[in-house]
Each structure stands twice: as C-alpha cells, then as structure tokens.
Amino acid sequence: MVELTWVPKLTWLAFEMLGSPEEPPLVLGYVPLLGVLRLSTIARKMVKLSSFLHETSVRDLTLGFKCEKIWVQPESLTRRQAHVFQQLRILNLVKIPEGYDLTWTMFFLEAAPSLEELYMMAWEHRCEMEMNQEFSENKGVEWESPTSNFKHHRLDKFILVGFQANDYMVSHVRHVLKAAVNLQDVYLYDRLVCAKCPYKIQNARISETIVRRMCPGVNLPIKFPYTNEDQHAVQKRMPRGIGSLAKIHFLTSNEIRAEHLPRIIGGC
C-alpha cells in the first residue's frame, strides 16, 4: 500500500497496481491540489470514491479495471459528499469487463454536474486478466438511480470504445442520450487490437476463425455495426422517444480521432 499522508503541492498522479490486494492499494490523505489522477488496479474490496477523493480537487480522472471486477461502489451522495465531484470535467473508465450492465456508470453523471467529457472502454482479454476463477466471476455491479428523470446539462462528448450492438450497450447509450440534454456527439468505436498478443489483427472484419487463431485471448463474437444498414438499425434503437439531437458516429479502431487518441491509448 502507498499512503500519501501529506503532499500539499501534488497536482498530478499516475498509479498502477499489479495483482489484487485485499485493501485499496492507494490511500490519499491531504492532497488538496491533486487535479489529475490516473488509477489502475484490481481491488477485491469496493471503494467509495467520495471517501477516497475527499481531500482532492480532481478535474481529470481515469479509473482502470483491467478487465476484472468493478471495484467502484456507486453511491447516493449526500450534499456534504457531493463536493468531491464538483470540479470533475473529464472522466475515463478503462477496460470495463464486457458483458455486464453499464448502468452503474450513470452514478458519475449524477455525481459530477460539471462533467464535459466521458470516455469508456469495454474490453475483456485474457492478456489482462488474473484468471482467478473465484475473483473473476460476477464482475459487474448493480446500481439504481435514486433520482427519476435525472438531467445533466454540461456533458458535451461521450466516447465508448468497444461498442457492440448488444442490448445492454445500446440501452446504456440510450440512458446517456436521455440524461445528457446538451450532448453534441457520441463516438462509438469497435474493439481495439490487442497490443500484447504475439499477432495483431489489422482488419476487424476478418472471420472469427482467423481472429481466434491470431489473437486467442480476444472475447468473441464481434458485433460492431460496420455497414451503413447496420448502423442505421442501431441508431433507430437509441434516440426513439428521447428527442436527443446528439450526432452518433460509428468508427473503427483504425479511425480513432486525434483528440481522442491520448485518452484511449493513454488509458490503456
């Protein structure tokens, strides 16, 4: 464990922990100027961010889950706790395990009224995982908003990497579209190529048989809507009855926009 008891001038911190400790590997004490935090770990116990970040002024937050169990505990914040997220402008949730409901991430929208950019990466790959069967089961977390018809007025961009045309992902995009009333753009990328496997997949549209042979750790099947027809079908499932004016962009991993690249690649 690393405990920062008194570091009053610290403004930027990147911390990555290998393995899965019983307790949170990082403890933040008095770090009032901490504005940028990159934290990637596998934690067995749930962490309440309102307690973890209470002595900070984080504006730019990256949380990495390494394809394992979600270790953030969604909270119904009191007015006293809410100050922790008042300055948060950019949030990057990296390597969220695939196949699990994403509703819990709406906690951040409700907690951070000034949030402007939301990045999420859903990705599950054996190269990243501990492969501990007991720990790897039930990776998701449940959360139900205490606020009905919640609206967020500052979110401008939503970037989701690893989008698949599955019900739970389409449903989550709908939730964001409905809540973020001033959202301008939604960028939906397909899965990234695994950089740790001995071979790289240069064309995501090759057959699943070839994908398994070249990159055996990848989680299949791939259900990204590549064709205009498939994209139109997905779009019809999203804004129905919402009235959102946000523009939805479908992009492959070879088409990552320059302004997104540092967040997507840097978060890995």
Rank of each mutant, 00 (worst) to 15 (best):
L91Q: 03
L91A: 06
N92I: 10
L93K: 02
L93E: 02
L93I: 10
V94D: 05
V94I: 14
K95M: 14
I96Q: 03
I96Y: 06
I96M: 12
I96G: 04
I96P: 05
P97C: 10
P97Q: 09
E98Y: 08
E98F: 09
E98N: 09
G99I: 03
G99P: 06
Y100F: 14
Y100V: 04
Y100R: 12
Y100C: 08
Y100D: 11
D101S: 15
D101W: 06
L102H: 04
L102T: 01
T103L: 07
T103K: 12
W104E: 05
T105H: 06
T105L: 06
T105M: 13
M106Y: 03
F107T: 00
F108N: 02
L109K: 05
L109F: 05
L109H: 03
E110Y: 05
E110N: 01
E110S: 09
E110C: 02
A111M: 05
A111R: 04
A111G: 04
A112M: 03
A112T: 07
A112S: 15
A112L: 04
P113A: 07
P113T: 05
S114A: 13
S114E: 11
S114D: 11
S114Q: 14
L115G: 02
E116P: 02
E117N: 12
L118M: 14
L118T: 00
Y119W: 04
Y119P: 01
M120D: 00
M120I: 15
M121R: 13
M121G: 00
M121N: 08
A122K: 07
A122T: 15
W123Q: 09
W123D: 13
E124G: 14
E124C: 12
H125S: 11
R126G: 13
R126K: 14
C127N: 14
C127P: 01
M129C: 12
M129K: 15
M129G: 02
M129Y: 04
E130V: 08
E130A: 09
M131P: 03
M131S: 12
N132Y: 10
N132H: 12
N132Q: 11
Q133I: 12
Q133M: 12
Q133A: 13
Q133V: 14
E134T: 11
E134K: 14
E134S: 13
E134P: 00
F135Q: 10
F135Y: 15
S136D: 15
E137L: 12
E137S: 14
N138F: 10
N138Q: 14
K139G: 13
K139C: 13
K139H: 09
G140A: 03
G140F: 05
G140K: 07
V141M: 07
V141W: 01
E142C: 08
W143S: 03
W143T: 01
E144A: 11
E144K: 14
S145W: 06
P146I: 02
P146K: 13
P146A: 09
T147W: 08
T147R: 14
T147I: 13
S148N: 10
S148F: 08
N149G: 08
N149M: 09
F150K: 06
K151Y: 10
K151L: 09
K151P: 01
H153V: 06
H153S: 14
R154F: 06
L155Y: 00
L155D: 00
L155Q: 04
L155A: 02
D156I: 07
K157P: 00
F158V: 07
I159G: 02
I159A: 00
L160C: 10
L160H: 12
V161C: 10
V161W: 01
F163D: 05
F163R: 04
Q164W: 08
N166P: 00
N166Y: 15
